[in-house]
Design a protein around this nucleic acid. Sequence first.
DNA 1: CTGCGCCTTCCCATGATGGGAAGGTCAACC
DNA 2: GGTTGACCTTCCCATCATGGGAAGGCGCAG
Lengths: 161, 161
Amino acid sequence: MNIGQAAEASGVSAKMIRHYEAIGLVPPAERRESGYREYDPEDVHRLGFVRRARDLGFSLERIRVLLGLWGDPGRSSAEVKALALAHVEELEGKARHLREMADVLRGLALACDGDERPDCPIIAGLEAGPIPASRPTVDWPTSRSSSARPPSRRSPSPGRR
Amino acid sequence: MNIGQAAEASGVSAKMIRHYEAIGLVPPAERRESGYREYDPEDVHRLGFVRRARDLGFSLERIRVLLGLWGDPGRSSAEVKALALAHVEELEGKARHLREMADVLRGLALACDGDERPDCPIIAGLEAGPIPASRPTVDWPTSRSSSARPPSRRSPSPGRR
DNA sequence: CTGCGCCTTCCCATGATGGGAAGGTCAACC
DNA sequence: GGTTGACCTTCCCATCATGGGAAGGCGCAG
């Protein structure tokens, strides 16, 4: 079958199939005399494996390892499990991070009236670091009128250039 | 102050400060005769705003909007709140997605003995379709000999597309 | 033979960030 | 003064996974 059919059958786009071949994630497909790639069910099966691993959030590099384990008759399920659990940790870490950001932002939004007035704790929070424990927003000598209307046009610095 | 100092004070790397300037996220910095960029506290303040917005997961394009709202005396807090809440939704959606993937994978891992034997439901799950419990019999020639592609059989269905 | 759809390769773009090279500037120290 | 080392400048490349599109070749129905 052609790459288009393999793509449809596996759920991996033709573009990606070529890419996976180019980076050596999957073995180079057979070629017909015309140069067309030729796929058999085994190839499609492998591509489906890759797609499902992607669907579970595995990076291509990890999938490379998974493919190796898949094809290794002497693999131990422990290896696979360890890889999977490490990945689970990673996914959960990312999810936690996203949720934390969402929580902080929702906290700010809750304090925001959401009316027609400009006063807004969300903006205020972004202005003066609500995010705990990151970097203390240096209290630079706000000598000039910079404490209220920041994004105004550039104020003329004395001298220079 | 130089870009390095502005970077340290704002928590945004010098590299990124230049980048933000290049894409027009922040106004071009003043230049000294030498070509060095010159930053004042207001610039640092704005960079800090950007960094905190990034820390909350806003994309640079959204931060562009936020900066506009920040500097707009006529903004309504409702606008800001709407933007923030939309972003919260997005963050939570992503978090949910990650968590779902993690759950599925952990489910597979729980079913995996993790011993010396090669049998592994994780691999099996990746091999065959949708994760749940269903298992459409896979009877492809799963010869794991890596590249023994036996029958280069011609696909009998000519009508492409 | 024509026409159309598929295939090929090659280049470019995304978003946010960083690495590093080649060369200019600043400030301090002897 | 001269040297040195830290800093700055621009420019290009890489990441990660994916896609868009151009230019040209192949396959098959009509």
